[in-house]
């Protein structure tokens, strides 16, 4: 697994939810980066958050407490995007 494959990309139902997630990540002192959504994951100019795969369970706990709608979590396996987490929240 190369470095990029150790990272996950989280998509959100809304820009606002991604900002709420960032706020939570900041408070939890998790390392993350807001990125432009990879083209293969949608063509709608959305913003996504990239963070370490190992932080995903903790991140999901944090966002589900706040009813943030996650559209999906993806990671790359052999150069292909795979969904590792179905949509949650609401």
């Amino acid at each position: 697994m190369n470095t990029s494959e150790a990272m996950a990309v989280v998509l959100f139902e809304s820009v606002h939810d991604s900002l709420r997630a960032e706020d939570i990540l900041e408070r939890a002192k998790l390392t993350y980066r807001a990125i432009v959504k990879p083209r293969e994951l949608g063509s709608d100019c959305g913003v996504a958050i990239r963070l370490k795969i190992e932080d995903i369970p903790f991140f999901m706990d944090l966002v589900s407490d706040r009813a943030i709608q996650v559209k999906g979590i993806y990671h790359k396996v052999d150069g292909e995007w795979r969904q590792m987490q179905p949509p949650v929240g609401g």
Binding site: S14, V15, G42, S43, D44, C45, G46
Partner: peptide, 9 residues
């Protein structure tokens, strides 16, 4: 108009 999101629609 433009919102910076869902731009493909």
């Amino acid at each position: 108009g433009g919102t910076g999101s869902a731009s493909d629609r």
